[in-house]
């Protein structure tokens, strides 16, 4: 049952992503991306990952707000036509189809859906509650067993936001210098 729902969701997401890439209007493309992201969130919910679903939902809202704020300019709304190189597009499509065809064997060799290989995770499931005192085993892994990963994540996030602010600031700083 879950599998059928997931196939349905993934088909919707594939259609939406094709639309998001091919549609001409910027606003439509960004909103269609929202369908893909919310579909991912719903898929996480189906696969029994409520924490992930909430985070993905928030991420999606933030991403859409950022994209719309940055790229949609109501005063001079113009959708410049982004022509694509037909030859390059056809070549890429053929190569990607070849990759799909070649990857069928690889996908068959993966563990079957519904039977995860749980070597490390079984230890976390068995001992997580006793060793960390957390009822939610996902948070016990993030904040205890793999706390250094989380530290690295926070560092990366901090650096990325700092970088974004630095990139956006350059012009205003120059203006201040000129005016002084």
């Amino acid at each position: 049952m879950v599998e059928i729902w997931l196939i349905f969701l993934l088909l919707i997401m594939i259609i939406a992503s094709v639309v998001a890439i091919e549609v001409n209007s910027k606003l439509s493309a960004i909103i269609t991306l929202g369908i893909v992201g919310l579909g991912t969130s719903l898929a996480f919910l189906f696969m029994q990952a409520p924490d992930l679903a909430i985070v993905q939902f928030l991420f999606e809202i933030f991403a859409i707000v950022i994209l719309v704020r940055a790229f949609i300019n109501p005063t001079k709304h113009q959708d410049e036509k982004s022509g694509i190189n037909k030859f390059l597009a056809v070549c890429t499509a053929i190569v990607l189809l070849l990759i799909v065809w070649q990857s069928l064997d690889m996908l068959k060799s993966l563990p079957e859906f519904g039977n995860p290989k749980m070597d490390t995770a079984q230890y976390y499931l068995d001992h997580g509650a006793a060793e960390t005192g957390s009822a939610n085993l996902v948070t016990s892994i993030i904040l205890d067993y793999r706390a250094y990963d989380t530290l690295g994540e926070v560092t990366v996030l901090f650096t990325a936001i700092l970088g974004a602010l630095a990139i956006l600031r350059v012009k205003s700083k120059k203006k201040v210098e000129v005016s002084e």
């Binding site: 950022i66 994209l67 940055a70 990325a160 970088g163 974004a164």
Partner: peptide, 8 residues
């Protein structure tokens, strides 16, 4: 973070 930086 990556998306925000790319947008910037």
């Amino acid at each position: 973070g990556i998306t925000a930086m790319l947008v910037a």
